[in-house]
Amino acid sequence: MKIKSKAMVAGVLASAAAMTALGTGVAHAADPQKPTVDYQLCGNVRDSSGNGVGGVSITGELWKPGPTSVATYTTTTAPDGGYCIQGTSNLVSVIQSQSGWVTLAGTKAGTAVNFGAWGGMPGIQLGDFLVRWDIPLQSASGFDGVY
């Protein structure tokens, strides 16, 4: 009986491995989007199952105390849900030297993306940037949202 049970378990594991290798019946989460150049803030938009959601319009708005809007950046998520908003040196300067922050908003087909809050605040601030800094670039990643 033990041999038969072990054979069944081995068969189930082999089937699961084959399904994973073939991509059958397994939800694929997007790989973490990483910056490729300076002055980017990157992340992924996923559905509640962890699958990447393409075609989401993302808007990042840079603010400094006042509050004063400094710049607006826009992009669209790739088919796997990855995105990077591209800023300028001002993006990093305002966050690092002027107590600035970036708010993120995203929508697709009228449905909003939940980006939550980082560090308890509704915006990417210095501490959030430093924790997710992609050294040696002047960029950060891990700013994910749920569609």
Rank of each mutant, 00 (worst) to 15 (best):
Q98A: 10
G55F: 11
L13K: 03
D80I: 02
N51W: 00
A117I: 07
Q138C: 00
L130K: 10
R46I: 15
K34A: 14
L137N: 09
G106R: 04
Y39Q: 09
T107L: 04
S93Q: 12
A27C: 01
L41P: 02
D144R: 03
G25M: 12
Y83N: 07
A17R: 03
L62M: 05
Q33P: 00
Y39P: 02
G100T: 05
A29E: 10
Q138M: 13
Y39T: 04
G82I: 09
V102G: 01
I95Y: 02
V92D: 06
A21D: 11
T103G: 05
L104R: 04
L22E: 13
V53F: 05
A140D: 07
A17I: 14
Q98I: 00
L13F: 13
E61F: 00
K108R: 15
A29M: 07
S93T: 14
T77I: 09
L41T: 06
F129K: 01
V92L: 08
R132G: 00
G55M: 10
S141D: 13
V37Q: 14
K2C: 01
A16Q: 11
L62H: 02
K2E: 13
Y147T: 12
L126H: 10
G11A: 13
V92F: 06
W101A: 03
T59R: 14
L104E: 07
G87T: 05
W133Q: 14
S15T: 15
M1K: 08
I85M: 05
I135L: 12
G119Y: 04
G54I: 10
P136K: 11
M121T: 14
E61C: 01
S49P: 00
L130F: 00
A30F: 01
G100P: 02
I58F: 06
P79W: 05
T72C: 01
K6Q: 13
Q86G: 01
T103H: 04
T77P: 03
T75Q: 08
